[in-house]
């Protein structure tokens, strides 16, 4: 990835009159951290970054903007928002367009074909984070860690993030401007964690998820980071009716986790952010992938690929499977 080209393109976009700001990544303050940055002028584009450390899905910020009521006589800021996206992030943008969460003409998608990002947790385990920022770059197949003027080769199969091992869309699905050359999709890992659980019987599954869900501290990080969880009035926050009690116990945790997974069924674009931010390391990705697989196999639908598609749960086909109906 040519950073110069990225920064130049970003600067050109940001100076446009109809653009409010550009959301991108920049170097974090220490270790393998990468921070989101809102670039408002051409000079800010110089700190933009696109490296294997850019795991975060920036599409979240499109719907996080607070819409406060306007004082009388004031016009709403109708300028566009530009956004750097990887393949998975572009699917989130597409899905948002499908759901009318954002308007297509309100966003400028700057696509960055992505050869896969690193799992920073695995990386920090092997090479502990230091007080100063470290860099990771793509080097052919593998990654290379630049730290203390030393170059360390990181084998791809060891450090590639889970979501990337199962990624089917490394190139942006939609983009107005593409920076860099498209990458060749790679062969997918065959262990997505779903079959492993499906091989268990009901008691074992119950025991497995009881152990996992009991760890949940109900911080709702998974909801907050998810680019597709953007309801202004979330059922989890609602007190009347109280759909899910606030008590942190297995029963309520299960209800919460099932509700979360269900709300994302047919919408989840598998960017893996929920799993990454989970402080209790609950394998939320398995739930999401299970639902994504059912939706794909049984209903022939894949979210976030076609901006013209109908939202999965708000549409139907007369010949949907009904083998479970008495």
């Amino acid at each position: 990835m040519d950073l110069e080209q990225l920064r130049k393109t970003a600067a050109e976009v940001v100076v446009r009159e109809d653009v409010k700001y550009l959301i991108g990544w920049k170097q974090g303050s220490y270790g393998y951290r990468v921070a989101p940055v809102f670039v408002e002028d051409a000079s800010g584009a110089a700190e933009l970054l696109f490296s294997p450390l850019c795991t975060a899905n920036l599409a979240t910020y499109l719907t996080l903007v607070e819409k406060t009521p306007l004082p009388r006589g004031q016009e709403a800021d109708k300028r566009k928002v530009a956004l750097l996206v990887k393949g998975c992030d572009s699917r989130a943008v597409t899905q948002l367009i499908v759901e009318h969460g954002i308007n297509r003409d309100q966003v400028i998608v700057v696509g960055c074909p992505c050869p896969g990002v690193v799992d920073t947790e695995k990386l920090a385990e092997k090479y502990p984070e230091q007080g100063k920022p470290a860099e990771v770059e793509w080097n052919g197949e593998n990654f290379v860690l630049l730290c203390d003027d030393k170059e360390t080769e990181l084998p791809r199969d060891q450090f590639l993030a889970e979501k990337c091992r199962l990624c089917r869309h490394p190139n942006p699905v939609i983009s107005d401007i593409t920076v860099g050359e498209p990458v060749e999709p790679w062969t997918l890992a065959d262990d997505n964690g779903v079959e492993e659980i499906e091989g268990k019987n009901l008691e074992e599954r119950q025991a497995y998820w009881e152990e996992q869900f009991s760890k949940c501290i109900r911080c709702y990080s998974c909801r907050n980071v998810c680019p597709l969880c953007y309801c202004q009035d979330c059922i989890l926050d609602r007190l009347n009716p109280t759909w899910v009690n606030r008590a942190v116990n297995f029963s309520e945790n299960t209800a919460f986790n099932i509700a979360r997974a269900f709300h994302l069924a047919g919408r989840c674009i598998e960017c893996g952010e929920c799993e990454r931010v989970c402080p209790a390391n609950i394998p939320l990705g398995k739930l999401n992938r299970k639902m994504a697989r059912e939706v794909r196999d049984k209903y022939g639908f894949e979210p976030g690929v076609d901006p013209e598609a109908e939202p999965f749960q708000a549409s139907f086909k007369p010949d949907d499977p009904e083998d479970f109906i008495l």
Binding site: I197, E198, L202, E203, T254, A265, M291
Partner: peptide, 8 residues
């Protein structure tokens, strides 16, 4: 499907 997956 989801409930079966979590062991119901």
């Amino acid at each position: 499907d989801l409930m079966e997956f979590v062991g119901v």
